[in-house]
Design a protein around this nucleic acid. Sequence first.
DNA 1: CTTTGGATCTTCT
DNA 2: GAAGATCCAAAGA
Length: 185
Amino acid sequence: MNILPREFYSKDTVTVARNLLGKKIVRKIGRIEISGIITETEAYRHKDDPASHAFSKMTDRNKIMFGEIGSAYVYFTYGMYFCFNIVAKTPKIAAGAVLIRAIEPLKGIEIMQKNRGSVNLKNLTNGPAKLAQALDITKEHYGIDLTKKSEIYIAQGIKPKEIIASPRIGISKAADKLWNFKIKV
DNA sequence: CTTTGGATCTTCT
DNA sequence: GAAGATCCAAAGA
């Protein structure tokens, strides 16, 4: 299994967001393995990005964005859902992370269906809160190292053919930046 | 098919 | 007190 090294995340956040497309996310629950191909990402940076959680200042919630590259940033939103991010930035930037917005299920689809309470494949992991729920990612995983073989890690995947850049979803600030990336499957 | 409201945590005003 | 990197079910057209 080719786990992506920490250097992979030590680039500009937007570059890493693009590079993560087609990579494989692996979730281990005991002996069971769940995995999927990353098909949509979004970059969130620091002072140059008013839409980022790290824009105004460091809080208890976002402090991992200022922390070690390659860590997981899991946050709780709208009082109900978790979203899964990966800390990625150059040493020059104080904070940054890539939001995983969608994946294509590979292994453990039955587990995902059970976690989500739905059998509709299209509806399983096509949104940030949905994939977190399908993979059973919670605040327990806040700050874990994704470059080691542990409960969650990111591995080499497929090579994307075509990358589509769009404005980010669900934000009102900095909507002109094309920092949402997706591939066709 | 489109619109609306509820769930109810964290941060900012 | 209000808004937010969301999703879903229910109601309306």
